[in-house]
Design a protein around this nucleic acid. Structure first.
Length: 259
DNA sequence: ATGACGGTGTGGCACCGA
């Protein structure tokens, strides 16, 4: 089975590209971030016609997350339990497969803008709460995948300019410590289980020919629990949709599991 | 220090993203 994550930066604009991509990459589940639309505007019908059910936690203008799946999803959780959040940034659901069930957690992690800012403090609080929630989720369902736009470049090799951008947003020690805290839960970065080309990124700035110059960051990730690690077959970034007309600034990340 | 690009919502631009 294949799972994927994609920050689409407005599903209203990107729906045709999502449908095109699913037609050629019929993943079992796709986690979307930055829908930028309320639940009543979510394109359930178009996705169902393409063979996908959806569970959604939407928000007008900003944020918004959804999980699309070819099979039914159950036990849906919207946002981080016990963490009061005005922003729609997380959704979890369980997917049943013939070989057993799988918990999917989809996050649109806080950007944080600038170290020292109130938004950065919110990012730290959000990450703390996420880690507590995942500890609970892992205890209930050992087969868990955390997918999403983490807004963290975990290591220097995940940035086009690690020296110039040291301790700036996405690169700070505090953010990287939180990424390590997720790994300390037993999760593993699926992308780094395989040999990858140098300068592999998942996001490129729209400005200054960022994509053409490969001035990017690897901030979209798929983390797998210990029970899933032996099943992982491959993980890669699909850069092709970033070459579309009117692309999202992010590219999809895909993982293949022997399930 | 700032803007560059793109989306949204508003209203002739501001805000946000990363």
């Amino acid at each position: 089975m294949r799972l994927a994550t994609w920050n689409v930066n407005s599903l209203a604009v990107r729906l045709p590209q999502v449908l095109d991509w699913l037609a050629t990459h019929p993943v079992d589940a796709l986690c979307l971030q930055e829908l930028k639309l309320s639940d009543d505007k979510f394109p359930f019908d178009a996705l169902r016609a393409a063979g996908y059910e959806a569970v959604v936690h939407g928000q007008k203008t900003y944020n918004g997350v959804a999980i699309l799946s070819r099979q039914p999803l159950r036990d849906v959780v919207r946002n981080i339990p016990g963490f009061a959040d005005e922003q729609a940034r997380a959704i979890a659901a369980t997917l049943d497969t013939p070989a057993g069930s799988l918990r999917l957690v989809n996050g649109y992690f806080v950007n944080g803008q600038e170290p020292g800012s109130e938004k950065f403090a919110y990012k730290m609080r959000w990450l703390d709460a996420l880690e507590g929630w995942l500890r609970t989720e892992l205890a209930q369902q050992p087969r868990l995948a955390l997918l999403g736009d983490f807004n963290i470049a975990p290591e220097d090799r995940d940035s086009y300019d690690p020296e110039g951008l040291r301790e700036t947003i996405h690169h700070t020690s505090a953010e990287r410590a939180h990424f390590q805290a997720l790994l300390a839960l037993g999760l593993v970065d699926a992308f780094r289980l395989f040999e990858q080309a140098p300068k592999s990124f998942s996001w490129w700035d729209y400005r200054m020919l960022g994509f053409q110059k490969n001035r990017g960051l690897r901030i979209d990730h798929i983390l797998l629990s210990p029970a899933l690690r032996p099943l992982v077959q491959a993980c890669h970034v699909d850069r092709a949709p970033r070459k579309n007309k009117q692309p999202s600034d992010h590219a999809p990340v895909v993982v293949e599991l022997n399930l």
